[in-house]
Structures are given as C-alpha cells and as structure tokens.
C-alpha cells in the first residue's frame, strides 16, 4: 500500500537531486533544470499532503497549479538571462559569472 510517507520520500529525493544539481553543476541550463526539479518536488509534497491530510479541501492541489505557473514564468526569465549571458561570454558556465563580487 502506497502511503503518505512514500510520496514524502519521493519528494525529498527529488529535492535533493535538484539541490545537488543547482549547487554542483556549472552549466546554467542544468542549474535551471535542477531548480525545476526542486519546484516539482515541492509540488509532489503539496499534492500528497492535500490528498492524505485534508481530502475535503483542494488548497494544496490548487497551490501546486500556481507553482507550475510561476515555474513557467521563471523558466522564461531564466532562459532569457542564460541567452544574454551566452551572448556576452559565448558560454554558459556559472563559474565565469562572478561580476557581483567586491
């Protein structure tokens, strides 16, 4: 029987994969994808809690839809930044993007 904890574990595993990718990868596109994974890990948790903890209410599921919407917008902005970065540096390595330091 698949219970709440399975979904939570799935969510946690996905989030850790995403976190690892976001922190460890150098390619900006991969980092963007990793962030998407983290957002979707959160979505899994939201839907699972909605289903098991408050089955009468749809709050969690509706919130997941909102997250997806925001994620789409975020991807659009993120890809735009990556393209601008590529035009500037001819590569998309975030190790090179350190202009914000002192």
């Amino acid at each position: 029987m698949v219970g709440l904890q399975h979904y939570i574990i799935l969510s946690a595993v996905l989030f850790c994969i995403g976190l690892y990718g976001a922190l460890a990868k150098r390619n900006a596109v991969i980092i963007l994808m990793s962030i998407e994974i983290m957002l979707n890990a959160a979505n899994v948790a939201l839907v699972a809690f909605s289903r098991y903890v408050t089955p009468q209410l749809l709050t969690g599921q509706i919130f997941a839809v909102f997250v997806m919407t925001v994620a789409a917008a975020e991807v659009a902005v993120g890809l735009a930044i990556i393209i601008a970065l590529y035009r500037q540096k001819e590569k998309v390595d975030v190790g090179e993007v350190d202009l914000m330091k002192w």
Partner: peptide, 17 residues
C-alpha cells in the same frame, strides 16, 4: 570579510543550505 563575497552564486546557495 570581503573574501567571503566571491560572486559565486552556487557558494551562496551552499551557505543558505
């Protein structure tokens, strides 16, 4: 202290985590 401000986003992320 300014040595901590490397400009590397991923280091900042690491620090947050």
């Amino acid at each position: 202290l300014r040595r901590a401000q490397s400009g590397q986003l991923q280091l900042y992320g690491m620090a947050i985590v």
